[in-house]
């Protein structure tokens, strides 16, 4: 195990950073750029911007926010939500994103994964998967922030996605998202053991021990967190220190 990354995830609706529970019941938090700059200064290893209504309305409006952010933020930035084509990916990468995260459009047309990774490299192409538990050891992939069933089995889908060229998996547990009850360790471990590429665990972080568990028991390669940071329940430094105390290889600042 090495290089565990701590990644603030900023869900964005219109011009605002928002936070909900189970990807619903949204509350406006403020300008995402202000949060991004703060997290950068606090020692975030990467950032994720997710336009959470884009695929619903078939658009991506993050371009301006991305452009403003990267003027002052010099760590990798992943942008997702509403990316439906190679053109969309190119547009957002040119705006300053380092990687794109794609869910809905990849479910509809898996070849998009291949097209994006071939042109921009696998390191640019993150497959975003929203997983809901459907019984013991079984998860189904959803789209549109947990609204639409796809009928795809998560483990089969991530294997296919990696074969097509996805370089990382952003794995969000719909069941745990926003609950602060800890990550779905079984899900994260099952996915991490199914694919040879890094897995970013998202959804459920409530205390520093959750991060330790999802790395040690869930075999996650990176941890995304939202609620605990946006509501200042803890700082990135608190989380980093908890990692160091548990002998987890996180960046030493």
């Amino acid at each position: 195990m090495s290089n565990v990354r701590l990644i603030p995830r900023l869900d964005i609706k219109g011009p605002n950073l928002v936070k909900g529970i189970h990807l619903e019941g949204l509350r406006v938090m403020g300008d995402p750029k202000d949060f991004a700059v703060k997290y950068y200064k606090d020692g975030a290893d990467e950032l994720i911007y997710m336009d959470i209504v884009a695929s619903l309305y078939g658009r991506n409006n993050l371009t301006d926010i991305v452009k403003r952010t990267v003027e002052n933020v010099f760590i990798p930035l992943t942008v997702g939500g509403g990316i439906r084509s190679v053109e969309d990916a190119k547009h957002i990468l040119r705006s300053g994103a380092d990687k794109v995260a794609i869910n809905t459009a990849a479910i509809k047309r898996p070849e998009l994964i291949q097209e994006v990774s071939k042109i921009f490299g696998s390191q640019c192409m993150i497959l975003s998967v929203e997983a809901q538990n459907m019984g013991p050891g079984k998860w189904e992939a959803f789209t549109d922030n947990g609204r639409e069933k796809t009928g795809k089995d998560v483990l089969e889908w991530v294997r296919q996605g990696v074969e097509l060229g996805a370089g990382e998996i952003l794995l969000t547990s719909i069941d745990r998202e926003g609950t602060r009850q800890g990550f779905d360790l079984e899900l994260v471990r099952a996915v991490s053991e199914s694919v040879p590429v890094p897995v970013i665990a998202s959804g459920g972080m409530g205390q520093t021990q959750d991060m330790v568990d999802v790395i040690q028991k869930g075999k996650a390669d990176a941890v995304a967190m939202a609620d605990v940071l946006h509501y200042r329940r803890m700082t990135i430094q608190d989380i980093r220190q908890a990692g160091l105390d548990s002998n987890i290889h996180v960046r030493k600042l």
Partner: peptide, 12 residues
């Protein structure tokens, strides 16, 4: 033990 490739992340 196999490890993840690409090598992604912060390293010293």
């Amino acid at each position: 033990e196999p490890h993840k490739i690409p090598h992604i992340g912060w390293n010293e």
